[in-house]
Amino acid sequence: MQLRYSESAYPIVTVEQMATLDGQTAHRLHNLGIHPGSQLTVLRQYPFHGPVIVEFDQQKVGIRYVVFKALLGGH
């Protein structure tokens, strides 16, 4: 599928887990179609651990830094 951004310009990460997220956040991310194994293109990260813009399935979504880290398996 055609990506909107050239792959070299933006890093692509894989969702490792969603178990450590709080219920509501996990639920909403599920609704958007994010699940373990999803590929996310990281378009932007704001300074001071601000929000992260990720793109997947032709949609762009802003999430919090802590959620982003949790998705990647960190804490």
Binding site: D22, T25, P51, I53, K60, V61, G62, R64, V66, V67
Partner: peptide, 9 residues
């Protein structure tokens, strides 16, 4: 502190 913030652009 940790509130849900997921916003579509």
């Amino acid at each position: 502190e940790n509130s849900v913030f997921i916003i579509e652009l």
